[in-house]
Simulated assay, not measured.
Amino acid sequence: MTEKRATAERKGREAEAQAAQWMMQQGWQLVAERVKTKGGEIDLIMRKAGMVAFIEVKWRKRAADLATAIDERRLSRVAAAVEMVAHEYANDGEDLRIDVLLLAPGTNPRHIANAWQP
């Protein structure tokens, strides 16, 4: 792994930990982290009052770069991964959604609830 890739990996893990902490402060319970599937990876799985959220976390050095951090192609990969494992994390009657949490230094986290609506 190159040094640049290793740094990106470390920053990604730090961002996911920060995102999980922020979501828990909002009343969510952490169910799982970094769930790998053949379709891709799900950064966080959180639960709150009949809802299970599969969360894609994006961190950028500059807040201005967050606008292009997530797109339909990336979200479709997350959705494919969710389809593979949703039954393992959601109980009958719980609603499912895919959220995005955008993070950058010096800014408040930006939570996009129900970001994937195919």
Rank of each mutant, 00 (worst) to 15 (best):
Q18K: 14
M46P: 00
A86W: 13
A104S: 11
A113V: 15
T68F: 09
Q29A: 14
R60F: 10
N108W: 01
R34S: 15
Q29T: 07
T2P: 06
V31W: 04
K61R: 08
M24Y: 01
V31R: 12
A81T: 06
D71W: 05
I112C: 10
V57D: 05
R74A: 11
E14P: 00
E41Y: 08
E41R: 10
E41D: 14
E14F: 07
P105C: 01
M24H: 02
D71Y: 10
A115L: 01
I55D: 01
Q26A: 06
G50H: 08
H87V: 07
R13Y: 07
R13P: 00
V85D: 02
H87N: 05
A64Y: 02
A63L: 09
A69Y: 13
R60Q: 14
Q26R: 15
L75G: 01
R13T: 14
A20K: 00
A104D: 07
R13C: 07
D43L: 00
V100T: 14
K38P: 09
E14L: 12
L44M: 08
E56L: 10
Q21I: 09
E83A: 15
K58V: 06
D99M: 11
K61N: 09
D65S: 12
E56N: 11
A115M: 01
A104M: 03
R60S: 12
N114V: 00
G40S: 03
V78D: 11
A67Q: 10
A79S: 14
A20N: 05
W59T: 11
Y89H: 12
D43C: 00
T107Q: 15
A104E: 11
V52K: 04
E33D: 05
I98T: 03
L75E: 04
H87K: 08
Q117C: 05
I70V: 15
G50T: 06
A19G: 05
A17D: 15
V78H: 02
W59N: 07
M51R: 08
V100R: 10
E72A: 12
R74W: 06
P109W: 05
W28D: 08
M46E: 04
D95N: 10
A19E: 08
L66R: 11
E56T: 00
A15H: 02
G12S: 13
L66D: 10
A32M: 00
A64E: 14
R110Y: 06
W28K: 04
M51D: 00
Q117T: 07
D65L: 08
G39P: 03
A81R: 04
H87Q: 10
D71P: 03
G50D: 07
E14K: 02
V100Y: 07
L103A: 07
T2I: 01
L103F: 03
D65E: 13
F54W: 06
K61Q: 13
I45C: 06
R110S: 02
V57P: 07
D99I: 11
V100Q: 05
K58D: 11
H87L: 10
I42R: 02
K48E: 09
E33M: 03
V100I: 14
W59H: 15
T107D: 12
D95M: 15
D71M: 08
Q18V: 04
P118F: 01
L103P: 03
Y89F: 15
M23R: 12
A69C: 08
E14N: 08
K38H: 11
R62H: 14
D43H: 07
M1I: 06
